[in-house]
Structures are given as structure tokens and as C-alpha cells.
């Protein structure tokens, strides 16, 4: 979700809360909303408010369709094409890394579907050689995806986001450790 989406969704939430507040205050006896509805400027103000609400509603609909549009990896077969959603491959990648010792948390995301590129973000347990761990991870991801999905990942970028401390769920960010 980009910054623009966050800002507009924030504004939508604010407007909805304001409307709810105005309705509640009217229910509890406040004349603020009623006065505004009876005011002489209602034609102008009401039109502006209605227009803003309609625009926000349209934006939310666009947002929904944008989120529904999944990204697919496509490869043609003799009997028709096979499309595999990237979220499906990403969940397989996370599962594939389960066997690698030293990894505490893993998340994967595709950055390119035409020349498949994957970014894997990990939090690791301490006392593991990060370079070797990354190489194991890259090799596992590449071979597993090739075997189960039938595509060759061109690039596997590994980001080590942090180290899992021994005493539980606490994650130390690398910047804090350096």
C-alpha cells in the first residue's frame, strides 16, 4: 500500500468517525447537526460533503479491485497456459525454508514475475554464519521452486532483518547490534 492510499484511507476513517460523532451527539441532544442541516449554506456545503463522500467511495472501490488483481507467473503448456499466483509461490518459499537451521522468521515476496526475482527477508538465530546461511537459503529457494513450481528463479535477494535473541520472542535489529 503506497503513501497516497494510507493518507486517503486515513481521511476516510476521519470523516466516518466525524459523521458517527455528529450522529451520536444528535442522538444525545446536541443541535449541531440539525442546525447545520437547517442552515442557509446547506446547498453549497451539503453538495461539497456529498461530493467528497462519493469520491472516497469510488476510490475505495478502485482500491478493492486493485487488491483483488493478483500477480501471476505464467507459463504456456500444450493444452493451455498455467498461471500460478505469486502469493502461492511465496507461501511455498516460506515453507521450503523451514528445514534450514538458524532461521527464526521468514517472509518472501516477488519483485519481478517476468524474470522471476524474489526477496526473502529473514530473522535469524544467533551463532550462525550469515553468509553460509544466506547461500543455503538461496540454493534451497531456487531448487525447491524449480522442482515444485517449474520455474527458475533468476535472483534470490536475502535481507537479514534481525537476530532472534535466545530469551524468547525478542528480535534485535541488526542496526542495534552493530
Amino acid at each position: 500500500m503506497i503513501l497516497f492510499d494510507r493518507v486517503l484511507l486515513g481521511i476516510t476513517a476521519l470523516i466516518l468517525v466525524t459523521l458517527a460523532g455528529l450522529l451520536l451527539s444528535t442522538v444525545w441532544g446536541s443541535a449541531l447537526l440539525v442546525d447545520w442541516l437547517r442552515s442557509a449554506n446547506l446547498t453549497m456545503d451539503g453538495s461539497i460533503v456529498a461530493l467528497i463522500l462519493v469520491l472516497l467511495a469510488v476510490y475505495i472501490l478502485v482500491l478493492i479491485t486493485r487488491f483483488e488483481r493478483k500477480k501471476f507467473i505464467v507459463y504456456p503448456r500444450e493444452l493451455g497456459e498455467v498461471k500460478i499466483s505469486t502469493s502461492c509461490v511465496e507461501s511455498l518459499i516460506v515453507e521450503a525454508t523451514e528445514q534450514i537451521p538458524g532461521l527464526a522468521q521468514v517472509s518472501a515476496s516477488f519483485t519481478d514475475v517476468v524474470n522471476p526475482k524474489v526477496t526473502v527477508r529473514v530473522v535469524v538465530h544467533p551463532d550462525h554464519n550469515l553468509s553460509r546461511l544466506s547461500e543455503d537459503l538461496q540454493e534451497s529457494v531456487r531448487s525447491y521452486v524449480e522442482k515444485t513450481v517449474g520455474i527458475v528463479i533468476q535472483e534470490v535477494d536475502v535481507f537479514v532483518d534481525g537476530i532472534m535473541k535466545d530469551d524468547g520472542d525478542d528480535v534485535a535489529k541488526l542496526e542495534d547490534l552493530i
Partner: peptide, 23 residues
């Protein structure tokens, strides 16, 4: 043509989830 759209993977622990999300 028989075009396939693979939308998700069901893991063994998921009993009835229609679509596997990114864990």
C-alpha cells in the same frame, strides 16, 4: 484450451481454508 490459475496452496494443517495465504 484448459487454462489453469493456481490461486493458492493448502497446507496440511489448514483444514478448510479455501486459499492459503502467505503465512
Amino acid at each position: 484450451e484448459v487454462n489453469l490459475h493456481v490461486l493458492g496452496v493448502q497446507f496440511p494443517q489448514e483444514k478448510k481454508g479455501e486459499e492459503a495465504q502467505i503465512p
